[in-house]
């Protein structure tokens, strides 16, 4: 079981409100994809789910109990970059969680327990197609291989929830398609709940069982940071796994508007002119 329920979640930094009024119930085993404009708080939402940050207000419950106050093994994560440990080989990266659990002091396994850990990790290794690279260091792997390793590593502790922060954002389209297949396969096998932030609307529709769109409902031109984003669309995707054309058109039309929103309304050149004088 890995049911998530979120009540009245709000996150603000001083006067800047990033997220507000978020209420969400996610059943065990759902695959939620999260889309929205840059800077609308998708990643903040993921950090809250991860307990990397504490929410200003509101609560997140996992299976009825509040989530722990710091990141722990019930919620796994894959970031866009820096997700694997560069000083460990592929196999060492994979057995690290098992070593950490079994040996609190040294964090290392030797002899038979180590061989058993390697066997346990071997299955996932071949599932993500990295059999041939088991003794390679991450620096020699391609971006796609590193992300496959990161996903496999995150799944070793059997997390209830897997959080993915634009995991395929840096990959080329062909590699992405292969990653989709691998990820969906692992999800069917492991039955964990998934939250995946993505910039790619099509990816969001293809992978998710449910699509969450983050955007600001309230917008004050004089105080652009006064209101935060919330979940504006919550679409179940069981049947139609591609974006309705109208939505794609709207998202594409929206993109320039988002970037043209002034972050800092004061004219920037004044300071320079003052210095020159």
């Amino acid at each position: 079981m890995s049911r998530i329920s979120i009540r009245k979640l709000e996150q603000s930094y001083g006067a800047v409100t990033v997220l507000e009024r978020i209420n969400l119930d996610v059943a065990s085993g759902e695959f939620c994809t999260i889309v929205g404009a840059s800077g609308c708080g998708k990643s903040t939402f993921l950090r809250l789910l991860l307990s990397e940050e504490r929410p200003t207000r509101g609560e997140i419950h996992l299976d009825g109990a509040p989530i722990s106050e710091e990141p722990c093994a019930d919620r796994g994560v894959v970031f866009q970059r820096y997700s694997v440990f560069p000083h460990l080989t592929v196999m060492e990266n994979l057995i690290l969680p098992l070593e950490l659990r079994a040996a609190p002091l040294s964090g290392r396994l030797y002899g038979r327990p180590r061989r058993e850990a390697r066997e346990r990790a071997g299955h996932l290794l071949s599932r993500v197609g990295l059999d041939h690279a088991r003794d390679a260091y991450p620096k020699t792997l391609s971006g796609g291989m590193q992300q496959r390793l990161a996903i496999a590593q995150a799944l070793i502790p059997k997390p209830k929830v897997l959080l993915l922060d634009e995991p395929f954002g840096a990959l080329d389209p062909g590699t992405r398609l292969r990653m989709h297949e691998i990820l969906l396969g692992l999800w069917e096998e492991e039955k964990m709940t998934v939250f995946m932030v993505t910039h790619d609307l099509k990816e969001g529709f293809k992978l998710g069982t449910r699509l969450l769109v983050f955007d600001k409902l309230r917008w004050d031109p004089d105080a652009p940071q006064a209101y935060g984003a919330t979940i504006t669309y919550d679409l179940p995707l069981e049947d139609h796994r591609s974006p309705p054309p109208a939505l794609v058109a709207e998202a594409e039309a929206e993109a320039p508007r988002q970037t043209s929103r002034p972050c800092n309304p004061r004219p920037c050149n004044r300071g320079l002119a003052d210095v020159a004088r």
Binding site: G76, F79, S83, L96, L100, P104, G107, A154
Partner: peptide
């Protein structure tokens, strides 16, 4: 060291001591 590494280590179940010995020190 990237913040992501320390977060990832925690989600893999590492204690502060284990983060020192297995993640930080070797790097």
């Amino acid at each position: 060291l990237p913040r992501e590494q320390l977060v990832k280590a925690q989600t893999l179940g590492a204690s502060s001591w284990q983060i020192v010995t297995r993640v930080v020190l070797p790097q």
